[in-house]
Amino acid sequence: MDLNADLGEGFGRWTLGDDEGLLDVVTSANVACGFHAGDPDTMRRTCELAAERGVAIGAHVGYRDLAGFGRRFLDVEPATLTAEVLYQLGGLDACARAAGVRVGYVKPHGALYNALVRHEAQADAVVDAVRAYDPTLAVLGLPGAVWLKRAEVAGLPVRFEAFADRAYTTSGGLVPRGRAGAVLHDPVEIARRCVQLATEGTVTSVDGFPIRARVDSICVHGDTPNAVAIASAVRQALTGSGVKLKPLDRENRSLTA
């Protein structure tokens, strides 16, 4: 099982979350690429810290929406979205290469992540960008998302993700952030859910129903106030239950690969 977190989401003098603390715990880092958050200094520093710790680097691509932190849907033309994802991939991969490693996978952020569950035109646009940049890159997303289905047909390596600190609907989607209880904060409860995901392949919905979930990676949001405590509790619970943690596709993403 992989344990990932959204990192590098500061901008200029403004910082968000404890990236160094999380990089001591997680096995993969979804690094913001400058569109929803992040800037060149932050991107390069985060890649260097991840490389030092043997943490896999993923491109956390999003809409061009710094003001909204990428959490607002944008009706971007597919060709433009393809170009914007290519731009983000190239920028982050340059920072990763400078640190002696490579970007190993792609994970959309925020509103783009949610849109790609059903939005076919944007799904195809993101798949086209990944294929054009590097068809060996893995793509990470919500099980059942249309973009992952398109990615699989296109021959891209597909990986499935669950969220440690988000509530699920009975249909397997994420409870919208505006609803009470959408984001979980208790490290003990979150760790228990993650063990259930890793060992049983299920998660309990907000209404109390068990949901089947095929999972390769579990995400802890880096902007949650107690993110390091949550990630640490999750890691300890997983390893204590006999779950082996492994970076997402890191074995294929060194500069010599």
Rank of each mutant, 00 (worst) to 15 (best):
A145N: 07
G21A: 10
R212G: 14
L184K: 08
E52R: 15
T239K: 00
S171M: 04
A29T: 12
C95R: 05
Y113D: 02
V26K: 00
A59I: 13
R45T: 15
D2Y: 04
V175T: 07
Q88R: 11
V76M: 13
V55F: 01
G208Q: 07
C219V: 03
L3D: 05
S241D: 12
L142A: 02
T42P: 07
R192N: 09
A115F: 10
R192H: 12
V243Q: 01
C33F: 07
A151Y: 03
N226W: 00
A115H: 08
E161G: 06
V206N: 06
A79R: 15
A99M: 03
A56S: 07
R179P: 09
V215E: 06
E48R: 15
L89F: 10
D65C: 12
H109D: 04
I190W: 00
H109W: 06
H119R: 11
P40A: 12
A154R: 09
H119T: 12
L238W: 08
A50H: 06
R72L: 12
L142E: 04
R235I: 09
V220A: 00
A231I: 08
D93Q: 11
R179S: 13
A129Q: 11
D124R: 15
I57F: 05
W14E: 11
K246S: 13
E20W: 12
H109G: 00
T202P: 04
S217H: 08
L23I: 14
F11E: 00
F209N: 14
